[in-house]
Design a protein around this nucleic acid. Structure first.
Lengths: 209, 209
DNA sequence: CCCGTGTGTTAGCGGTCGTTAACTCGATGG
DNA sequence: CCATCGAGTTAACGACCGCTAACACACGGG
């Protein structure tokens, strides 16, 4: 094998443990010694693999954002029917939320700890991902305004990203059961966009457009 | 007025600014000098009002947890109809999520930074609040299992607590419009609990119970 | 055989942070 | 008029943290 293979494994191992620790105790709450100890080396040995603690967080956030966007775009591209595409988007996001819980947590929690260039990149990836969702949601629910759809997408992200809270206290038994329930909840929430009221006017509820 | 009044105001001012800073940059990311500067005094002057930085966070988290629980219990107690009680619970939570955004953020983000005694208290308050919701949800959606209802409640919390993400980029125009949309999304999400599949068995989807 | 390279170690530096100590000062009340 | 007290100041200390420096050592190829 190529000599970079072992290095890659080490890097990935470090990133995995760093993600877990950052999610548990916050970026500033974890010392480099603890990250090193989690992978069996100690402290400054990490600097053979990363230029610094910031670089680890940056690689984690850029990675998860990019993978979310790539997976979302792929699923949308290969699913012509909008309703099925929305289903696929939700299912894909649930996979990330369940399998990469620490990353999902970091992704909307420690973004401000990045240097500005990295932060702008991550934000751009996140924005494109949201746009992907908004476009599909508006095709499935044409009555929704742009603002409504965008807010609803953020709300559904909050719903789907609630998985970290489920594991803490007794949680659901099976992964597939959790995924199925979240899928139904998210789809059903978005179905509210076909309801009555619009919100561009400050008026009270109205039934017709 | 009593001499404690000015003290209370100062304390509340400090707590408000501390909550904002903690939510923005994380508990470990904010120094006591910054908190002091935010209220016009500097650094160690805070120790005339709090025994330490930890005490500020503890008071914030116990406060929001307690107020959420108290408000929820009151609304449930004075609303006999379960569907209306659920509506009131959602509306009350939205009020907190919109008006006390930093506290809602801290509430599920910095809990682990508390000393164990405070952490246990906050967790107990949170658990009781969840139980209040679960009881009402199960009365409105009797087909849902305990586990389903609990997971759905956590998911709806995630949905409602997404407000901090809305304000960051363009957000919704009016407070009442945002509140109304979140209300519809949350109610509609929970309506999925009346759907087909159960999840206590590991089998595939079934239509009957 | 040995030398370069990858990967680790320990010691230590410079800076930051939470907290305490010692002091100041205006207001208040007998 | 002075003693007390609440509320703030600055200085400084000890601990911790991210990171660098200097060194160790296995190993693979000429």
């Amino acid at each position: 094998m190529s000599p970079t293979k072992a290095v890659e494994n080490r890097r990935e191992q470090i990133l995995r443990e760093a993600a877990r620790l950052f999610a548990e105790r916050g970026f500033h709450g974890v010392g480099v010694d603890e990250i090193g100890a989690a992978v069996g080396i100690s402290g400054p040995g990490l600097y053979r693999h990363f230029t610094g603690k910031d670089a680890m967080l940056a690689e984690l956030l850029v990675g998860i954002s990019g993978r979310l966007l790539a997976a979302g775009r792929m699923r949308v591209a290969e699913t012509p029917d909008p309703a099925e595409a929305l289903d696929a988007l939700i299912r894909g996001h649930i996979d990330f939320a369940i399998d990469d819980r620490p990353l999902i947590t970091l992704h909307d929690r420690e973004l401000d700890r990045l240097r500005e260039t990295d932060r702008k990149l991550v934000r751009q990836l996140q924005r494109q991902y949201v746009e992907e969702w908004v476009a599909v949601v508006r095709r499935v629910h044409p009555h929704a305004t742009e603002l409504e759809a965008r807010a609803a997408v953020h709300a559904v992200f909050g719903l789907l990203n609630s998985t970290p809270h489920l594991g803490s206290q007794s949680g659901l038994p099976e992964r597939s059961a959790t995924a199925a329930l979240l899928q139904r909840l998210a789809l059903s929430a978005l179905a509210a966009l076909d309801g009555e009221t619009a919100l561009d006017s400050g008026d009270d509820r109205r039934v017709t457009y």
